[in-house]
Nucleic acid binder design. Structure first.
Lengths: 206, 206
DNA sequence: TTACAACCATACACCAACGAATGTAAAAAC
DNA sequence: GTTTTTACATTCGTTGGTGTATGGTTGTAA
């Protein structure tokens, strides 16, 4: 095949990553060959091995396209003067919306449910990294809420943070296992709202 | 090799399953060959193919040894006259204790984090089955709690059930990702107690 | 314009794992 | 005591996937 222009080459790379998302999600990482990914993208394995060193390198590049730190989600939706609990609420909703996009949904489902570790890739370490990042952000907000007297007196912010993080983690796992079972945004909003309402000192609000 | 007695044959079958638990957990299901499992058990692949049809059949047999329906956990620990919330509390604790046993820990960690679907095995269907079983049981208890006036008036039993189930699901996923990170029993007890306390109408009780 | 290098296709060698076939010695059935 | 079956071990053909080497065409910089 002829040499492409730089833009075309970049498009090829993106097409390979798109194809990897789809085939990894459908067949699982271990059960997909680089040949299948190449064909899905209308290329051959030569293109794959040109743009990526191997399957692990391709997988890593695929993940790099779908990062979303919690602080970023909050900054996108919550005004700077929002209360800590409102910031959490809005950040979660933004996360639900993003996760419902096909790209994020497929990649995260692949990470959580369709890949084991292989060669030098450790999906659990990546999961742990994201979970801890979220946990740290939630802890800051809930500590602020505590300081502002928004939480129940008998609720430790540390415990509340772990509780909320476990709820979110379970929600994501359950939804990504079968995205047709329920609406992530609706149920997620319902659960987060309820959980934060149970956390708060003032029962009437929310 | 000489023929074994029936008891010895059953012992080799168990040894193969034990070996499968260990190697699947260490290497991941996709990355372990039947040869590795056989060698771990001190056998050859001939033994494996005698007792099991293929890797999927072996995997399924491995899972069959670690079932624990929620009702069974409750029946083992809670007296028949316990309140619904107390039954949930005790059932969860019993589940945490069981899950901390090496066998259950390894198998569930393998199911959740170390296997993709392969051939005719669908791990997510098995996860969903267990999750739904637990969800159904929790719903019954929380409906009873509602009927007995134990829940907050502003809390729907359905929502509470989903909230608790998501929390448990997230807790298991997070712990099985790194069982050294924290004690499942301690944190699990803490989270469940807190969650149920937030659910209940009477805040003073423990 | 020319030469190089980017970009991708094609071809090839290699290896690990599967599954089936076969061998076999002892246990169990008669 | 003989036969049959069990419970494996061993061997072998096949296959699917990987990584690399090589070829070929064309942007692109000088």
């Amino acid at each position: 095949m002829a040499r492409r222009t730089k833009a075309e080459a970049e498009a090829t790379r993106e097409a390979l990553l798109d194809a990897a998302e789809e085939v990894f999600f459908e067949k699982g990482v271990a059960c997909t060959s680089l040949e299948q990914i190449a064909r899905q993208a209308g290329m051959t394995r030569g293109a794959v091995y040109w743009h990526f060193r191997n399957k692990a390198d391709l997988f890593r590049a695929m993940l790099d396209r779908v990062r979303m730190p919690f602080e970023e989600l909050v900054a996108e939706t919550a005004p700077s003067d929002a209360s800590p609990l409102e910031a959490i609420r809005l950040g979660c909703r933004q996360g639900f919306r993003r996760m419902e996009q096909p790209r994020h949904r497929r990649v995260h489902a692949t990470l959580l449910h369709r890949c084991e570790f292989f060669s030098d890739i450790d999906p659990q370490a990546m999961e742990a990294e994201m979970a801890n990042e979220c946990l740290g952000a939630l802890l800051i907000y809930l500590n602020n809420a505590r300081d502002q007297g928004l939480l129940r007196d008998d609720l430790d912010p540390d415990v509340a943070t772990r509780l909320l993080q476990a709820t979110l983690s379970g929600l994501f796992h359950d939804w990504l296992r079968d995205t047709e079972a329920f609406s992530l945004y609706e149920r997620g909003t319902q659960l987060v709202d309820t959980q934060l309402r149970l956390f708060s000192r003032d029962n009437t609000s929310g």
